[in-house]
Design a binder for these strands. Structure first.
Lengths: 182, 182
DNA sequence: CATATAATATATCATATTGATATATTGAAG
DNA sequence: CTTCAATATATCAATATGATATATTATATG
């Protein structure tokens, strides 16, 4: 055990909520999960075929309705596989912030450049925050509709809290760097 | 441009501060950078050989002093390569938090398990926080010794701020889940 | 109504990275 | 004088990214 591929688990997790196409899975990833998890088409599509081969998901041809849409549904085995993975402690939580990395080596670049990295980061966070806030709004309203909403809300509130902290840090960091220039 | 491998840039960045062995690079990564960047031996050692081949670093045999220690130093070309990369905007900032991922799919596992994921996360953060706080202390005392310290301090304060927010969130999340049980 | 554009949809592949493991030396503790 | 932890380099299968190719459908615009 504990050898589960992450991509299989995320996909099964999303399929545990609803049946989806590969494209829709990527969209969910880019919206609902993007502030704590990411995946590319290059891992999603092969993983979907693999999950079908292993009987953890089934593929249905949605062509009846329109175009070559392939719809995936989780199986009982898939649900058990997911549950087994969920029962294990999280093996890794990590950040990969290129902004922080560039800032760490700031002595090599000077304050102007360091400042512009912070400003770009700040702008990115300010742009994403409204989406999280509106998601929170909607989730709070429909809190009792589905059990999944409660957990979704927990992760959204994590995102909102950390994003606010990021903005606080940006303000302080900018001040610290600017002050030294004057 | 903009095709720089991340691993090359982190290594050159660390070498811009001081000459290091591959093992020491990994150690720096695991301590000073771990809360915003990570890398494995499997990427460090091949990258070092590659950097030497491309003239961005030089390898010196430290065997004179002891054992088969290979010490790496950044070259002028290496420094220029680093500066060029630093001048470009950060291409990606992302989290990869398995804890949040498992929590997102909480409906499939129930509140007990969700709670234990949060508790494990909380414990991990509480364990790491003191290291950041002591680093902050030391950096503040030696703030003016080297230019690099100022930038290091910026990233450390980012870590401290976000970790405190994580702990706040943990408390709220635990309460939310526990309240519903009673 | 034609057509340009954006969104939907699947797929592949070279390149990058992880995670695990193997091997050996050195320093410190008991 | 031996065991244990730390130092040190290295490799490799498995995994994931990032970029790109291709085609269809829906929508907007002159």
């Amino acid at each position: 055990m504990a050898n589960e591929k992450k991509i299989d688990c995320v996909i099964l997790g999303l399929l545990s909520h609803e049946e989806l196409t590969g494209y829709e899975i990527k969209k969910r990833m880019d919206t609902a999960l993007s502030y704590f998890w990411n995946a590319s088409y290059g891992s999603i599509y092969p993983a979907l075929s693999d999950l079908v081969d292993r009987g953890l998901a089934v593929r249905r041809d949605g062509a009846a309705s329109r175009r070559n849409k392939l719809i995936y549904t989780i199986t009982e085995d898939g649900r058990n596989y997911l549950k087994n993975w969920l029962a294990q402690p999280a093996s890794k939580d990590e950040l990969r912030y290129e902004t922080l990395l560039k800032l760490f080596f700031g002595a090599e670049q000077g304050e102007e450049q360091a400042l512009s990295h912070i400003e770009a980061f700040e702008a990115k966070i300010k742009k994403e925050l409204p989406y999280l806030l509106s998601a929170e709004q909607i989730l709070k309203e429909h809190q009792n509709d589905a059990d999944a909403h409660k957990y979704y809300l927990l992760t959204v509130s994590f995102g909102i809290k950390t994003y606010h902290t990021y903005l606080e840090w940006c303000a302080e960091a900018k001040q610290l760097l600017s002050a030294r220039r004057g």
